[in-house]
């Protein structure tokens, strides 16, 4: 999802009897729903997997500002502009909560930034698609933030305390994002035929990428079992994807829009909507860096980091000088 392909470094799931006393005590805590805190003993694989997952999640929040930032200056009204600004500011905040949670595991902020800028760390595939019209801002809030919520709600119960607490804050704020997106879609669908066409076009382009946010099908997702045993992951990719489809199809119907998948049909026997195969080749290409906007997104982050260097360094130099003067005066 926001962390789509987190390779866990655990060597397959061990049973309690196979574990050394430290690891066994750790696993028993997780099984008893006791949170793991930064100074507690933890297996190296747990620490590494969490650093990967939380930093990918944080990078996604930060890069996720870019597609929407594209429309701030062109929002159709002053009110829409203020709302979009507040939303994008929230994404920055979410990135910061998450970076701090990752830092409690012994990785520094600069290390994480460097991993993002060098292309070594990943972020969600969804942010490598372009925002071509104002309707895309509606579709992102409705679908992308909707999918994010679906993933983040169970993460509030993650076994790692700082990640769980960051997720609780994020979830409190995220619902505004989805609702403002759906509100944009409702307005467009109540408007002129051209406006409704814009909304349909945005849904057509964002539907598949949104479903792929949940990550590859369970059969191909090799690291899930260990992450679930560690309480880092609560649901499988396919479970969450199905839940998202079940919630979203009726919402599209309410708008009078058509989900761009002829196979979407209510399945009475399963009690779920069926839906068609997704194009996983496209997903892996985008993750590899070959999506429509990968270069632009990374370029924007690199530019922000380089252009801001003099400012960060200047403030630090000023703080040090002032401290030195204060020390001398004392």
């Amino acid at each position: 999802m926001y962390a789509q392909e987190v390779k866990s470094t655990g060597q397959g799931v061990k049973s309690l009897d196979e574990m050394e006393p430290d690891e066994r005590a750790f696993q028993e805590k997780i099984n008893a729903d006791v949170k793991i805190e930064p100074k507690d003993w933890m297996p190296e694989g747990y620490r590494k997997t969490l650093i990967r997952q939380i930093s990918q999640h944080a990078h996604s929040e930060i890069v996720g500002q870019l597609p929407e930032g594209n429309w701030i200056t062109r929002a159709p009204t002053l009110e829409r502009k203020a709302i979009l600004l507040a939303k994008v500011q929230d994404e920055a905040g979410h990135g910061l909560y998450l970076y701090c949670a990752a830092e409690t595991l012994g990785v520094s902020r600069d290390q994480m930034t460097e991993q993002l800028l060098s292309g070594k760390a990943k972020y969600s595939s969804i942010f490598n698609y372009p925002t071509l019209t104002w309707a895309d801002i509606g579709a992102i809030g409705w679908l992308v933030d909707g999918a994010a919520i679906m993933n983040q709600v169970p993460l509030q119960r993650c076994s790692y305390g700082p990640y769980s607490r960051a997720m609780i804050r994020v979830c409190k704020e995220e619902s505004f994002h989805q609702r403002q997106g759906y509100d944009i879609m409702m307005k467009l669908c109540e408007g002129a035929p051209e406006q409704k066409d814009m909304a349909q076009d945005a849904l057509n382009r964002w539907w598949q990428p949104s479903l792929m946010m949940f990550g590859p099908p369970d059969g191909d997702s090799v690291h899930s079992a260990q992450s679930m045993a560690w309480g880092i992951k609560q649901n499988t990719n396919d479970e969450l994807r199905q839940k998202f489809v079940d919630e979203t199809v009726p919402q599209a119907e309410y708008l009078g829009l058509t989900v761009p998948d002829p196979d979407v049909k209510w399945n009475e026997a399963r009690g779920h909507y069926d839906f068609g195969e997704l194009d996983w080749d496209e997903f892996y290409e985008v993750l590899k860096g070959n999506g429509p906007c990968n270069k632009e997104r990374l370029g924007a982050r690199q530019k922000a980091w380089t252009d801001g260097a003099w400012f960060r360094e200047g403030l630090m130099a000023h703080a040090k000088k002032r401290d030195a003067r204060k020390m001398a005066a004392e």
Binding site: Q89, G93, C100, E103, R109, R169, E173, L315, M316, A319
Partner: peptide, 23 residues
Amino acid sequence: VGSLHAPDQEIAIKNARDVYTRR
């Protein structure tokens, strides 16, 4: 409520305002 990076205490408070009290 959490943590953040800042060059000095004055900016730390300003950043805390933006990161942790938006609502």
